[in-house]
Structure formats: structure tokens, C-alpha cells
Nucleic acid binder design. Structure first.
Length: 143
DNA sequence: GCCAACGTTGGC
DNA sequence: GCCAACGTTGGC
């Protein structure tokens, strides 16, 4: 059985929001123009789950997406850039702000804070689980 | 709007 | 192949 990997993918909501992914069901994740991020795209496997982060506006993880098609040539790129297809899995009951992750003992070590500008970064299983937990609606929070 | 981080470009 | 200049990203 293949080892499952987890990821965090970034998008400005004005470019492509999670809400739009939910509406579309699935989409081609194109436009990555950074070699390191491209290599991560190429490492993605069908079924890998991704935290969906809104950069610039929101600055929070708003839900989970899943890889449904592995690396293929990015139709929007000139040379050998890479795209994958993702589908929405579910929206969080509560968006998890970046600041909250930074202050978190486990999440503060996430790669997103060391490589702030990378639009695709791997996330550990523990980090993924912790973010998902924070994203649950307030059943356990306040009262 | 500012600025730090960092990738890319181009002159030498 | 080095490195300074420049451009872009994205948090604040």
C-alpha cells in the first residue's frame, strides 16, 4: 500500500477560492511556476489530501481537497510545468487562521512558515490532523 | 502600503 | 559561475 502524503496548497481567493472549488466539484490545479512547488505536485498521488489555504485574503485554512489526477503537463504553461486535478472533500466548520497555526506548538513548525512563499508544501500526518481538529466547528470550544 | 524573503535574470 | 539588481509573493 502506498504511503499517503498530506499537503497544503495555497490560492488567493480572488484567483480561485475554495468556495469555487466546492461549486465546481473538481478543478485543474494549474499555474504553479516554482520548481520546488512543481516537484511537490509531481509527488502527489491520487487520494492525497490537501489543506486548502487562502493567501492574502483570509489567511486561513478553509477546507480539505483531494488529488484526483496525478501530475500532467500544465496546459497553461510554456515548457514543462505541471498540473494536477483536485476535488473538494469538505469545508471546515470553522476556518483556521494562519496566526493560530503559528502560535500552535505543533503547527508552528509547519513548512509553510519556513518557506512562506511556496504555494505547495508537504504537511505531516500529525500537522494535518491538528489542523483538521482546529477546523471542527465549536462543539468542543467555548462551553 | 510597506517590507522581508527569496527566486530569477543578466552583466561580467 | 558569481553576484547584484530586480520582480514577485504574501504577511503585517
Amino acid at each position: 500500500m502506498a504511503r499517503r502524503t498530506y499537503w497544503l496548497i495555497k490560492s488567493e481567493p480572488s484567483a480561485y477560492s475554495f468556495r469555487r472549488l466546492v461549486a465546481d466539484g473538481r478543478t485543474a490545479w494549474t499555474g504553479v511556476r516554482n520548481y520546488e512547488a512543481r516537484n511537490y505536485l509531481r509527488a502527489m498521488k491520487v487520494g492525497d489530501e490537501c489543506l486548502y489555504y487562502h493567501s492574502n485574503v483570509g489567511k486561513d485554512v478553509v477546507g480539505i481537497a483531494r488529488v484526483v489526477r496525478e501530475a500532467y503537463p500544465d496546459p497553461t504553461g510554456d515548457d514543462d510545468w505541471t498540473a494536477v486535478d483536485i476535488a473538494h472533500v469538505r469545508a471546515f466548520g470553522r476556518a483556521v487562521p494562519l496566526a493560530e497555526m503559528r502560535d500552535h506548538p505543533v503547527l508552528g513548525k509547519m513548512m509553510i512558515f519556513r518557506r512562506a512563499r511556496l504555494s505547495v508544501v508537504p504537511v505531516t500526518k500529525e500537522e494535518f490532523a491538528a489542523v483538521v481538529h482546529l477546523g471542527k466547528a465549536s462543539e468542543k470550544a467555548t462551553t
